[in-house]
Amino acid sequence: MTRSGPIPPDGPRPGRRFAGRTGFAALAVLYGALVGVCLATLVGAGDLSLGRNPIENLARTVGEFLRPSFLDVWLGPERLEYRSDDGSVLRVENRREVEAGFLAATARATWVTFQIATLGSLLAALMGLPLALLVARNLRAPRLLAWMAKGILDVSRSVHTLVFGLILVGIVGLGPTAGVLAIALHSMGTCGKLFAESIESMDMAAIDAVRATGASEAQVFFHGVWPSVLPQIVSHHLYVWEFNIRDSTILGLIGAGGLGLLISEAVSLFQWDRLSTLLIVVVALVMAFDALSRRIREALL
């Protein structure tokens, strides 16, 4: 990486046309027109409807969600008899035992989801960091490499985790591995972009001061660049991790393991009480990790 001479000016930027109050008003009008067109075409095609009896459906769904299945572990009937129409007993089950088993399965799935998110995010950060170093304009990587790295990041960011997951399930088979790789490939783009932005916002004068002592490029990186960006990189990594815990709950839908599998099962069998349990677990997991990562990020600054 050669670093001599000043950064060439960007030249007149097209975004300048929207500067000032009139420009902002024009943007607002443009946005309003876009929203209007979206609404008008949807209504015109008759696709904007809430169904036949939304109020009743809403009340029923809420009612079922309000009694999550895990309550059955303590409150459920110990002897539930399934009878046929003529009154003969088909099957007897202990609801408490059944739901306790489901709860245990949920716990295992939660752990798998956490594993997928954690390993996937780590892999994403490890792959995203070198690409970010190439993309960050202030580090002046060779232009061809920078373009290629930017292309990789853009592609990986624009393909959804689920799409990566579908492809990877076909390659590495069902299970958490596909989930980890799917998360890693998609988050690599997010990580790379966030890392590159924090590198670009560095105080370059301090970096130049390190370079001015005659330090080698590696020394400049480890004494100037790395300590300056490390807190932001850790903070971005935590953010992506947090995001992936949310994201990986859905990956089970495509057979990549974790809570998503149980969610799709509960949805297909219309077991809204179990779905309610699962959603409570998801929300608790995400909120706990949010709180934790916020603490860590605050401590880092």
């Binding site: 004068a205 301090a206 100037g224 300590p227 300056s228 490390l230 807190p231």
Partner: peptide, 29 residues
């Protein structure tokens, strides 16, 4: 660069390193 000692306006220390680590940067070369 190694033989030229610059003390420019703006000072330009690496903010997150300690005073000692910043001083040691001078000895890297």
């Amino acid at each position: 660069r190694r033989d030229t000692g610059l003390l420019m306006q703006g000072l330009h220390l690496v903010q997150r390193l300690s005073a000692r680590e910043n001083v040691l940067i001078g000895a890297l070369a």
